[in-house]
Design a binder for these strands. Sequence first.
RNA 1: GGCCCCGUCGUCUAGUGGCCUAGGACUCUGGCUUCUCAAGCCAGCUACGCGGGUUCGAAUCCCGUCGGGGCUACCA
Length: 488
Amino acid sequence: MANDSLKKEIRVRFAPSPTGDLHVGNIRTALFDWAYARHTGGKFIFRIEDTDRERVTDQYIAAAIDTLRWLGLEWDEGPEVGGPYGPYLQSQRLDIYAKWAQTFLDNGDAYRCYCSTEELEARRESQRAANLAPGYDGKCRNLSAAEIAKYEGEGRKPVTRMRMPDGETQFNDAIRGDLVFEHKFVPDFVLARADGSPLYTLAVAVDDVLMKVTHILRGEDLLSSTPRQIRVYQAMGVAPEDYPIFAHLPFVMGQDNTKLSKRNGEVSIAWYRDAGFLPEAICNYLALLGWSPGDDRENVTMQELTELFTVERVNSSPARFDMKKLEAINGDKIRALTIDDFLLRALPFVTNAGIISGTDSEKAVIKSVLPIIQERIAKLSEVPQMVKFLFGESVEIEGESKEKISDEVSKDVLRRSLAALEPLKIWNHGSIDAALRAVLIEEMGLKPRIAFGAVRIAVTGSHISPPLFESMELLGKERAITRIKNAI
RNA sequence: GGCCCCGUCGUCUAGUGGCCUAGGACUCUGGCUUCUCAAGCCAGCUACGCGGGUUCGAAUCCCGUCGGGGCUACCA
């Protein structure tokens, strides 16, 4: 691989089929593709595999573009940015595939197959029954002119099918080593439907060649389709030394050791965005699924990832997705944010929660409380509940907390706190602390957690809040006093 | 069923024949700190799937076995 980088530019592509929102597995692949391209100083190509227009929608394509951008995985060639080997939507390259399919037909590498879906299915069924490997049996491989005329006369429309020669395909996978597939287990496969529309096997191989892709880092599920892809390279006349290097990435699995799905954790990246995860946290965590820097470090920036990422360090075994660890990393990333950056990222969550409308003064209030909540949250979605008490005159005390301050001791605490706080000339966390401590701890002899707990609930509405004295300072004397009175 | 891939703490991983009485991180448990919740600090629990080889020596190499996963489409 080192030699390649000397003689030609590294070109890596991420080519999803947007049949739904991009999910964790897709993004891990995209991240590795991107990181490898950046690491080698090569190009990162983004291609949309939308040959199956019945399942791919424009909405999903737009979402995929949006998700990649949000994560910071900028592409050098692809949708919206163009490039010298475009277009980068396969649905716009149909004529190219048709031309190659015809070439394969002309050269005898492919042939027309008149078998209907039903006939194929029936034969596969009997193959299974006879304990044979199901797959195309080669019925139409060598049709005579008479047979063709007969089928045409019946009105059958032929698909274009690739001829797999006898023998085997060998290739070196950068992650798994040397691999051999015997062709007797790789049946002739369909390149294009009767209407001429291409299938994945045709489009992917043609585009990788035409777009001069040098490295294919993709999911392990495509491993067994690699011989078919290589067969297309051969038919296109590509020299073996010019084949792309394959690296099949291990799966990202759900909790129960099956493929990720709604059931065992949310898969759509859009969901993580809404849940308050930072893109750099998602990338950092995903980078650790199937790859590691080699030393003990786990907190890596995008910059470090591009510097350290090599396929040699990619694991070959599948990884389980762990939400807990993602949250831990997300918390670390939040704590690493500057207050201005934190504010920028948190604002949408506070606004969407209906806590503020977005005025400058409201933003200033949010910004003032951010420093004391930064280390207490793991996700941006937790910001609203933490800052809520700073808005509005009164506060609603939640059920469980309400009971905690309805007893006589609490009432007494609140009454005495009120008396100690009202005369205060200087209102800051230091003076509040001193005043409350004097009357509640020293005079009453209460345990701090009992004493301050009651005040906390009265002032913030909850027994869980940012530090009390700082919260009261930010709230302001007037509202703090009012809330204590209301709670008595 | 066939073909293929994979197998170190609960999870992610380090480990490429001796540095391993297996290291780190997340989780969990206990403690410290403490105005709640967090954060932080300390401690603890827990792993080389199994069986054979090769070797002076194996988590590391080989074989078998078991287990998990993928593919087996006119999806990608």
